[in-house]
């Protein structure tokens, strides 16, 4: 879509867009190109010279069982976070959308976790699930469940999944509620008169109309789980115990910043870049479909 009414002039618009373009070039495009070029290079042991090595860094990466494990772990993590965050939000939004009183109140009370930083979500959940000081964690130990997310990898993973999903529910809830309220009441009413009730009405009438929102949130949540949860995972256990919560984003940071392996870290960055591009393409596909209907 384009505007029909325009202003004349070429210099003014160029000046208006220039600051943003400069920042984009210096801090986004240039570093991204750098990531791509250094993913094709390797430094010698002393960091004094670099040589072009083609796709060697990528070959190493995909031949590394630790990296492959991290890919699998990240997929599981993203799937769990997305499923929990969307499932819980959908149930709550459906309940809040029924003609009950206090809808605005419920929305207000469920909206605020949106403002919680991913790192803060980790801290709050640690305070709850810490094996000694946490209300829930200490209780689990008292009733005989050996709970310590600092020692047990599965427990650590469960904790970061819950902390990450907890924060994202409110975002999904806002969108699901808006999507549900956009469905014309006459359609629901007609289904009711035809005798479709409860779960069946939801499955055959409401859910299909809600699918654009579902697709949209699916992509948003996957991007969130893959990238924005760095702080959540890092603040809980720094990726540990062992590598049990090391997701791909964490590995980029640990390999690049902590272990100073620029070539490998850059190759990992490029792999992630490809991941974001795929997710963005998916989003466009779904949005395109939505615009067409």
């Amino acid at each position: 879509m384009e505007r029909r009414t325009l202003f004349p002039g070429r210099v003014l618009p160029a000046l208006l867009i220039l600051p943003q373009l400069v920042l984009t070039g210096v801090f986004f495009l240039w570093p991204a190109l750098q990531a791509i070029t250094s993913s094709l290079e390797r430094e010698d042991a002393f960091g004094t010279s670099t040589e072009f090595v083609g796709l060697d860094n990528f070959a190493d990466l995909f031949g590394d069982p630790l990296y492959l494990a991290a890919i699998g772990r990240t997929l599981v993590f993203c799937a769990c976070v997305t499923a929990i965050a969307m499932g819980v939000a959908l149930v709550l939004a459906v309940l809040a959308d029924t003609e009950i009183r206090g809808r605005a109140f419920y929305r207000t009370m469920l909206i605020w976790p949106y403002a919680v930083a991913p790192a803060m979500a980790a801290v709050l959940w640690v305070l709850m699930f810490h094996p000694q000081i946490g209300l829930v964690g200490a209780w689990l130990n008292r009733i005989g469940i050996a709970w310590d997310y600092k020692l047990d990898g599965t427990q650590a993973m469960a904790l970061v999944v819950l902390a990450a999903a907890w924060k994202q529910v409110s975002y999904n809830f806002i969108f699901f509620l808006a999507g549900l309220q956009a469905i014309p009441k006459t359609i629901i009413e007609a289904a009711r008169i035809d005798g479709a009730r409860g779960v069946r009405r939801f499955r055959t009438i409401v859910l299909p109309l809600l699918m654009p929102t579902v697709y949209f949130l699916l992509v948003v949540d996957l991007v969130y789980a893959a990238f924005d949860t760095f702080a959540t995972v890092y603040a809980v256990n720094g990726g540990g115990p062992g590598q049990s919560t090391q997701t791909l984003v964490l590995k980029v940071y640990l390999d690049g910043v902590v272990n100073a392996n620029v070539g490998s870290s850059s190759a990992q960055s490029v792999v992630l870049m490809a991941g974001v591009i795929v997710l963005c393409a998916l989003q466009f596909r779904f949005l395109g479909r939505k615009a067409a209907t």
Binding site: L21, F28, P31, A35, V252, V270
Partner: peptide, 23 residues
């Protein structure tokens, strides 16, 4: 220009960590 700005959507800081630091 519009598409160059748009591209930044696909470049969160996590995917260009080290080079951005170098800049």
């Amino acid at each position: 220009a519009f598409w160059l700005i748009f591209l930044t959507l696909m470049l969160p800081v996590e995917v260009r960590l080290i080079p951005t630091f170098q800049v």
